[in-house]
Design a binder for these strands. Structure first.
Lengths: 190, 190
DNA sequence: TATAGTTTTTACCGACTGGTAAGTAAAAAA
DNA sequence: TTTTTTACTTACCAGTCGGTAAAAACTATA
């Protein structure tokens, strides 16, 4: 890999770790530079501002998350199987990349003066939600999801609840969600 | 009310609003003082440090939340009714005091150098979770909750999922949770 | 009205913040 | 070989941060 790209990548990596732990305002550029083994000014050679750096970190994380949880279910057939696949891949994701998840989830709550990166962040998150909601919508057409349940609500529900629970209980949660969302045929074990 | 208490209260109120919107690190003491109509130094007359101020704000918010969601179900009989009451009061709480909720939920994620207030915060949140988990445990004894579902997981699930969903879909979420948690008798409408 | 205690403001501190200007060594292009 | 570009450092800026000391204003009691 080109050296310059490597350096840029190193900065992004250090920034991601720091932001995930302490949030945007809790981290200084100095700190990121130190952890990346680089002088602070160099960060400004690659990124125009702290906000821009953060945005790239965040955006990559959502992309990574979307890829991880939606790719595995592309081949699946009916809705029940898709949901199962989604939950499984999400659980894997939470287990293996909890930093990324925390980063994505925490920072979308900022209410701050709108405009700037924060509205871009909320918008992108809505896109992700919409994709999951689209899947639930299919489930309704297949009559596997009760019709009185809103797809968007279900999408928020799935992503949100898994992200707040601690890792010990992920499988349990999977069950809870399946039971809530799918119209169960009595004789169809978990 | 005594003037001094009033002033103290005014500061706490301004602090709460600011912290809920921007998080601990996103808010300056100057800003809090300005919004409270007070000089910054006066805050230090009432509170020893920013962390202490924040901790009191946060603690009050959890207490308020616990009171709001657990009180209404003290009179209720069986588990199904209790859960229903809990969900109802929680939904009301989310609607009427979303600031408080956001404050409580956001800040418990901080990983920061441990010790200080952040571990106290996590500990207190665990207490709240434990109380909800206790209720679910009762439900298991009454055979209304499937035995293979962990009580702590369920508690995290209930509090967590409601807090991430947006207000439009709260009632839908209520349904989803009921279906997931309670062993449904087929002929018992929502 | 003098006095003592409480509450609030003024004025400041050193440390740190995000960000920039100027310069440099090495590599690439000419 | 000379010129230009890339990648990076040093040194600094103005502004803000959390926090403090001390004076000033207010209140209560005598």
């Amino acid at each position: 890999m080109k050296k310059s790209v490597e350096t840029r990548e190193k900065i992004l990596e250090a920034a991601k770790k720091a932001f995930a732990q302490k949030g945007f305002h809790g981290v200084s550029m100095e700190e990121i530079a130190r952890n990346a083994g680089v002088k602070k000014a160099l960060i400004y050679y690659y990124f125009p501002s702290k906000e821009d750096l953060f945005f790239e970190v965040w955006q990559r994380s959502v992309d990574e998350m979307e890829e991880s949880i939606l790719k595995p279910l592309e081949g699946e057939g009916n809705f029940a199987k898709k949901l199962k696949a989604l939950l499984k891949s999400y659980v894997d994701f939470v287990r293996s990349r909890s930093d990324t998840l925390r980063l994505v989830e925490r920072e979308r709550l900022y209410r701050e003066e709108d405009g700037g990166i924060w509205s871009k962040i909320r918008k992108r998150y809505q896109e992700l939600l919409a994709k999951v909601a689209g899947m639930v919508e299919e489930g309704k057409r297949e009559a596997e999801v009760p019709g009185d349940i809103d797809s968007m609500a279900t999408a928020q529900f799935i992503l949100g609840s898994l992200s707040t629970v601690d890792q010990t209980h992920l499988e349990n949660l999977q069950k809870l969600i399946m039971r809530g969302v799918i119209r169960m045929k009595e004789n169809e074990g978990g």
